[in-house]
Design a protein around this nucleic acid. Sequence first.
DNA 1: GTCAACCGTAAGCGGTAACTTACGTTAGTG
DNA 2: CACTAACGTAAGTTACCGCTTACGGTTGAC
Lengths: 103, 103
Amino acid sequence: MTTYAVDAWTALGDSSRRQIFELLAERPRSVTEIARGLPISRPAVSQHLRVLKQARLVQARSEGTRRIYQVDPAGLAALRAELDGFWGKALENFKQIAEQETE
Amino acid sequence: MTTYAVDAWTALGDSSRRQIFELLAERPRSVTEIARGLPISRPAVSQHLRVLKQARLVQARSEGTRRIYQVDPAGLAALRAELDGFWGKALENFKQIAEQETE
DNA sequence: GTCAACCGTAAGCGGTAACTTACGTTAGTG
DNA sequence: CACTAACGTAAGTTACCGCTTACGGTTGAC
């Protein structure tokens, strides 16, 4: 498993980036389209998109003068797997506690 | 769905808090026990635990002079559900794209 | 009671990150 | 060609946040 400079958790730790990611989860959008509806400037959106891209959470393709961003399914799957790891450990943990209490 | 001052994403956005959460996913631990093995002081751990608690990610119980922390299964489940929401939307999104391309 | 272990919180500081403004680049349009 | 729309990036500022040190409170042991 490769390690990136910016992990998905840190990327989604920011509220603005989460909003952007939610918008992209609905459907692919351009930068300007994302900036509309958000209370931040367009360059700010660009900077957030760079972080999300470094975290492998979004992809971009060029379409004329516009850049269309969409969620990266692989990165989202990786994050989901990591969270499932927590879930599994915690569950196993609770089972042990339950067994101890029933002794 | 109740909104908290500190959401789970923001809480896990910090690297130290993620490490703490991983430790607690393995088994419940006291504050001092968590602080050992982490490169930060014990009060720092306390502050992180407060954030994790506000985000409903951990619970605490008293055991003598020690406070035993453990992951809150409800909070973790909520986070998992939210991530699954992203997953569902993104998946539906990709399906539409695939259908358009096959036309 | 005295002592020690464990913990939470307040205060203060330094670094960083999120934002804006300004600028340069590229692609399409007339 | 000129003009515009869309975007990325650099520079600078500001606010926040993660950390340490210091202190006070509580519990158990002797």
